[in-house]
Simulated scan of single mutants.
Amino acid sequence: MQKILILFGMICMLIVATNYAYSQEIRLATFQEVAQIVIDKSISQNVTASIALQSSSIQEMRISPELEQKIRENGRITAIVLTNQNQCILGVVDESCIIINVARDMEDTDFLTIQNSTKKISEAFIDELNTAFDTNAEFHSTFIQGNDLMGKALESSGIVSGRGTVSAVYTMPMEDTGSMYEKISAILLPSQIRESGGFYDVAKNLSTHEKAKMTFSIIPLGNKSLLQLKLSVDYPNTALSITEVNPLELLKTNELKRSEYFSGKFYPLNSILQVVVLSPESINVSNIRGNTIETQIIDNEKIPKEITKEGWIFDPDQGKRIEGKYIFGERKSIDKNELIFSLEGNGIVPKKIETDFNESIVIVIIISVVAISAAVYYLKGYKKLNK
């Protein structure tokens, strides 16, 4: 287990180092904005629309340097999560949560030992976290993660959660999303970012939706941490009926604008729209109204030949899992009618699968990790094209 954790840490350090080195060449900023739509016809039958603002800089997501360093250097903490999800973890209802995810020590074989070991680590952080978030969360329970169901469906690893992770859960009274998002945004985001609009404005407007929920996560990655503020809205039991995908309709906006924080320089990969469709049967993309970007295959991946052009890249564009990313190129905004596309195939309206699947916060964050890699993925491809 220790060797696996060391290997994972080395991989994460490589990702961060690569991110930094490439950013000098084509201006990849540390701050990123990602809009994401997940249409899950396979497991939950729900649609989730979200806006994630993320950075590896504690100047752009303001937490104290001492706390950030302490989290990274602990070695066993895989993520810290603040959320007002309805059921942040099994056994918690109608309360907001701070969750401290800890890699399980495999020498701890019984539940009591696992619980005590995890609680000892979490207790060393909760007071500082309450101060940082202006909260008063108190210990509720520990929860041992048993699987990585959504991670497998998305073909992503359970970086934040999954088998081998134990969650220490601290709870507090439920706070409505609009006020909570406004408070946490003011704490974390400098005024320059908040006043620059872009995806942040979409998230702020979406925060008043009756089903809106927010999550802030700290994910230690080698010598830096990924800091992510995410606002999401679930549309329960709507995935099965979707044959035409209109991303901005789900985000409740007619236009998606890039943040003015990037104005004056060319940061083509820091604003990305992503759509993921999961289906129990094979489906394919059709009737794309907007542009598609010309690509070539590098290391079995579709890579854009020209990042100054706006448009979709679907990879894969057929099968049980479809993923599309929209790149703005040199454009500052995109209209909702330019983003619509259709789905075809036997899996479009399958028989509804009854399931007791629980969409806890650990699942929500696994989804967000897919979006986190988007800019780095394309940056890697662009680097190869220009060697």
Rank of each mutant, 00 (worst) to 15 (best):
S96Y: 06
M61I: 12
I89L: 10
S263K: 15
C97Q: 00
T208Q: 14
K351A: 07
E128T: 13
I283C: 07
P65I: 00
P236E: 08
D105V: 04
N386W: 09
L256H: 06
K183V: 01
T208F: 11
V245R: 04
L226T: 02
K265C: 00
G347V: 02
N86Y: 01
P350Y: 05
I37C: 04
M172W: 09
Q87S: 13
K309I: 03
Y382H: 14
I4Y: 09
N358C: 08
S64P: 03
I242N: 06
G197V: 05
F139D: 07
E25C: 08
T131K: 13
Y235T: 04
R62E: 12
N84P: 04
E182W: 03
S225D: 07
G9Q: 07
L206D: 03
L28P: 00
I322K: 09
I193G: 04
S55H: 06
S241Y: 09
L149N: 01
G324K: 06
P268I: 01
K120G: 13
V233Q: 04
S225A: 13
E107I: 03
Q274L: 05
L231C: 11
K257Y: 03
Y382S: 13
G75E: 02
T292L: 13
S373V: 08
D317E: 15
S368W: 05
V47G: 00
G329N: 08
N86A: 02
K383V: 05
E182L: 13
D335V: 03
S207D: 12
I327T: 06
G345V: 01
S157P: 00
L231G: 00
S241M: 09
S282E: 14
I363W: 05
L385N: 03
I218C: 00
Q45M: 09
E138D: 15
E301G: 07
V362K: 07
R194E: 08
D105R: 01
K351Q: 09
K230Q: 11
V369A: 11
L188Q: 01
Q192D: 13
N386L: 12
C97R: 01
S225H: 06
M106K: 12
V93I: 15
V285Q: 14
E330Q: 13
K224G: 02
T215L: 14
V349R: 05
D299Y: 14
F266G: 09
R321M: 15
I98S: 10
I218P: 00
L379M: 15
I98E: 11
E323K: 14
D110H: 08
T135G: 05
L248Q: 02
E255S: 15
A168I: 05
K41T: 04
D127S: 15
I327R: 10
T177G: 11
R258N: 02
